[in-house]
Every structure is written in structure tokens, then in C-alpha cells.
């Protein structure tokens, strides 16, 4: 038997809701495990790529330099890269900070907020550096497919994955294209 296709997933600046939605495929998850092996993913807690991967699934937008690094490594390792959910596609809710310059944003959060006393903007070297705005994934690396939704429903993810594993292009009917 040929090796099963390998799938990797990650959440950049998102809420993990898209991953939850993937778990919402219910009993089909047993079929899925039969069909694919998971590589780097929060689902199996593998931290780094073990080798090339067939399908990469990205949740979340790109808000800091670490996101950029992770996304680039997904592009490097994955044959097909799928951006999933509003944050990955448009920046989503985290990108609401794009309406305010980063400086003001941080000052409001850490210095001037009405409930703050003696605040300071965190700058521990371990903390990733924020970008000037939150970018959709397609503005950082080439993305092959986009699945909208907040989150995309389990049916969207299942339909798209099933098609991709068969080497087909994912086609979403009217009821599966939603932005919320």
C-alpha cells in the first residue's frame, strides 16, 4: 500500500475555531484518519515538519514575524497550501486593529487604558514582533486554495479536503461559501 497523503495544519493569528470546526466533522474524522497521516499540527502535537507534506492547512492571519516564519515554512514543505477561515483570507477579526496605527493600538492597550496603572508595553525578547498591520496569508506566500467562513463549516472542510485528497479542485456550492 502506498503511503497515505500527509496533512499539516497550524493556527497563526486566529482563535483555533477553524481547527475546532475540523473536529466537527464528527465520525468522519475516523475516515479522515484512515485517509491521511497528520504531520506538524496541533491535532497530534507534532512541533516541526518530519518531511514533505501534501496538504497544508492554515488558519489565522499574519500579525507578527513568527507568523511569517511559520507560514513560509508551510509554503516550503506543503505541496498544496490551503488558507482556511476569514482571518487567513482577509485578516479577519484580528485585523480590526488595522484601523488604528500600531503605536496607538499598543499605547491604548498597555499605557493609556482607563483600567491601567503604571503599564508598560511588553518587549520580552521571546515575544514575536508585531507587524504594522495584520496581513491575509495570500499577501505573504502563494496560497493555492481559499476556504471562507468564520469558521468554515465542517462540511466545507470535509468537502474541500476530500476533493484535494482525490487530486481534484475543491468546489463549494452556494450554501458552503459563507463569510461568517
Amino acid at each position: 500500500m502506498a503511503a497515505k497523503p500527509r496533512v499539516a495544519t497550524c493556527s497563526l493569528t486566529g482563535c483555533f475555531g477553524c481547527h475546532m470546526s475540523l473536529l466537527d466533522i464528527d465520525e468522519r474524522i475516523i475516515d479522515l484518519i484512515g485517509l491521511v497521516d497528520f504531520d506538524k499540527s496541533p491535532i497530534d502535537d507534532i512541533k516541526s515538519f518530519t518531511g514533505p507534506v501534501d496538504v497544508g492547512i492554515i488558519e489565522g492571519g499574519v500579525s507578527n514575524d513568527e507568523n511569517v516564519e511559520v507560514l513560509r515554512s508551510f509554503r516550503e514543505h506543503c505541496g498544496v497550501l490551503v488558507a482556511v477561515g476569514e482571518c487567513a483570507l482577509t485578516g479577519g477579526v484580528p485585523s480590526m486593529r488595522n484601523l488604528v496605527p500600531l503605536k496607538e493600538c499598543l499605547e491604548e492597550a498597555y499605557l493609556k487604558g482607563p483600567t491601567l496603572v503604571g503599564g508598560a508595553i511588553p518587549n520580552d525578547p521571546e515575544i514575536p514582533l508585531l507587524l504594522d498591520r495584520v496581513y491575509p496569508c495570500h499577501e505573504v506566500v502563494r496560497i493555492d486554495y481559499m476556504l471562507p467562513g468564520c469558521p468554515p463549516s465542517a462540511d466545507v472542510l470535509w468537502t474541500a479536503l476530500a476533493a484535494l485528497l482525490k487530486g481534484e479542485e475543491p468546489k463549494l456550492g452556494y450554501e458552503l461559501i459563507k463569510y461568517d
Binding site: E86, T90, V93
Partner: peptide, 28 residues
């Protein structure tokens, strides 16, 4: 700046509905 997930109009929005109709996944 159209943040559909947090918009009161989502689901009843004519702009969104047209984007659905024409199969837009994300504005590029």
C-alpha cells in the same frame, strides 16, 4: 473594511450576498 464575522448585517447583507452569488472566496 468589511468584517463579516462581527457585522450585524451578516447573512442579510446585499453586498455579501452578491459576493456569495458570484463565488468570491476572498478579495485579492
Amino acid at each position: 473594511n468589511h468584517f463579516c464575522p462581527i457585522c450585524e448585517k451578516s447573512g442579510d447583507c446585499e453586498l455579501q450576498a452578491l459576493a456569495y452569488k458570484f463565488g468570491m472566496t476572498a478579495p485579492l
